[in-house]
C-alpha cells in the first residue's frame, strides 16, 4: 500500500489542523493488520492520521467493524489479538510511543493514556471489591500507599457521582447497576488524571437517560482534569452534542473529518450523508441516501472502500484510492466527488 504524494501532503496538513500548538497526541499513518487465511494479511486500519489538541474532544464515528476499537487499543500499543501494528507512529507528549519498551508503555497505560470501556460489568474483576480495584490503579501507577489510595478512590467515586460512595467502596461488581458500574470504570480511568482519555463506546448498552448523565459527567471531568478525549461512538447524534471535531471512520479509513458545524451542516462524503440520513427524520433525505447494502463486508483492494455502496460512484472510484482533501477550513474529505451544499 503506497501513498500518493498529494495524499502525504494533505495528511501532514491535517495533522497540524486546529491550531498552532503542538498536538497532545498525533497519530500518523497508523496501520494494523490481522492475519488472514491468504498470504496477504487483512488490513483493518489503513493508514489513520489523527491529531488531538490538549483539551479537545474529538469524536470518532463509524459502523461496527469499521475499526474503532482496534484504533482505540492500537494507540496504547495493544491491538486486539491477533492483530499487529504494521506501521505508523503515535506521538504523545513528545515521544513516539509505539517504539517504547513494554515497561515504558505500561507506565503510560492507565496513567497518562486511559481507556473507558463498554460493558462495564465485564470489565471488572468479579472477585474484588470495586474500591480496591480503583485504589489499585493509584497504587500501581502513582506509588501511593494503601490508605492514601483508598482515600483517592473514595474521592474519585464521589466525583463520578455514585450515590453513597462510602458503601460502594465495599461493593462487588455484581451488586452494581450498569450505570453505576460504568461510573466505576470511569473512576478507574480518571483516578490518575490522564492527559488523554479514550472513551470506547462507553455508553452503549445503557438506558438513554443514564447515557446522557454519563456523557455529561465524562465531559465535565475531562474539562476539570484538563484531559483531551477521543470519543468513539456508533451514535452520530451523541457526537454532535459532545465533540469539538468529528472523524468518520469507514472500513479502516477516515473518510471525513471536520469541526462539528461543518460536518453536520455540510457533510461532504456520501457515507457521512448516509450516516446522518439514517438518524434523520426527513423521509426525503433518507430515501435519497439510504442504499440497500449488499455484501457490506467485501473489501476493495483498489479504489474507494465505499465505492460499492455509494450511490454516486463513478468508474474512477473503483480503481484509484481518493486522497484526503481539504474542502474547507479543517474540513477534510476522502472523496473525488464531495457533495456540495448550496
Amino acid at each position: 500500500m503506497s501513498l500518493g504524494a498529494a495524499e502525504v501532503i494533505s495528511n501532514t496538513r491535517n495533522a497540524s489542523a486546529g491550531g498552532d500548538k503542538p498536538p497532545l497526541i498525533d497519530i500518523r499513518n497508523l496501520r494494523v493488520t490481522f492475519p488472514s487465511g491468504g498470504a496477504e494479511p487483512k488490513a483493518v486500519l489503513k493508514g489513520i492520521d489523527l491529531a488531538v489538541q490538549p483539551g479537545e474532544i474529538v469524536g470518532l464515528v463509524g459502523e461496527s467493524g469499521a475499526g474503532k476499537t482496534t484504533l482505540a487499543r492500537s494507540i496504547l500499543g495493544l491491538p486486539p489479538s491477533p492483530g499487529r501494528i504494521a506501521g505508523g507512529e503515535v506521538h504523545f507528549e513528545g515521544r513516539q510511543i509505539l517504539s517504547l519498551s513494554e515497561s515504558e508503555l505500561r507506565r503510560l497505560r492507565g496513567r497518562r493514556l486511559s481507556v473507558v470501556v463498554p460493558n462495564p460489568r465485564a470489565e471488572l474483576n468479579p472477585l474484588l471489591k470495586v474500591g480496591d480495584q480503583i485504589a489499585s490503579m493509584a497504587k500501581i501507577h502513582l506509588g501511593v500507599a494503601g490508605k492514601e489510595a483508598r482515600r483517592m478512590a473514595l474521592e474519585i467515586l464521589r466525583e463520578v457521582q455514585i450515590p453513597d460512595p462510602e458503601r460502594r467502596m465495599d461493593a462487588y461488581p455484581h451488586e452494581l447497576s450498569g450505570g453505576m458500574a460504568q461510573r466505576v470504570v470511569i473512576a478507574m480511568a480518571l483516578i490518575c488524571s490522564p492527559a488523554f482519555v479514550i472513551s470506547d463506546d462507553a455508553t452503549s448498552g445503557l438506558d438513554v437517560t443514564v447515557q446522557a448523565q454519563i456523557l455529561a459527567l465524562l465531559a465535565k471531568l475531562a474539562a476539570e482534569h484538563g484531559s483531551a478525549m477521543l470519543f468513539i461512538s456508533r451514535d452520530v447524534g451523541i457526537t454532535a452534542h459532545f465533540c469539538d471535531r468529528i472523524a468518520v471512520l469507514f472500513s479502516g479509513e477516515i473518510v471525513e473529518i471536520a469541526p462539528r458545524e461543518p460536518l453536520f451542516l455540510e457533510p461532504a462524503h456520501p457515507y457521512t450523508l448516509m450516516l446522518l440520513a439514517a438518524f434523520s427524520h426527513s423521509p426525503k433525505l433518507r430515501d435519497s441516501w439510504t442504499v440497500p447494502d449488499t455484501d457490506r463486508r467485501r473489501e476493495r483492494s483498489a479504489g474507494c472502500q465505499y465505492a460499492d455502496r455509494c450511490p454516486i460512484a463513478q468508474p474512477v472510484c473503483r480503481t484509484l484510492r481518493p486522497p484526503l482533501a481539504e474542502i474547507g477550513p479543517g474540513h477534510f474529505v476522502r472523496c473525488y466527488f464531495p457533495v456540495r451544499h448550496a
Partner: peptide, 20 residues
C-alpha cells in the same frame, strides 16, 4: 475475559494480571 484485557489496558504487567 474482558477484565483481563482491561487490566493490561490499565497498565498492569503480565505477572500482576495473573496474580490479581
Amino acid at each position: 475475559m474482558r477484565y483481563v484485557e482491561a487490566s493490561q489496558v490499565n497498565g498492569l504487567s503480565d505477572m500482576q494480571t495473573i496474580v490479581r
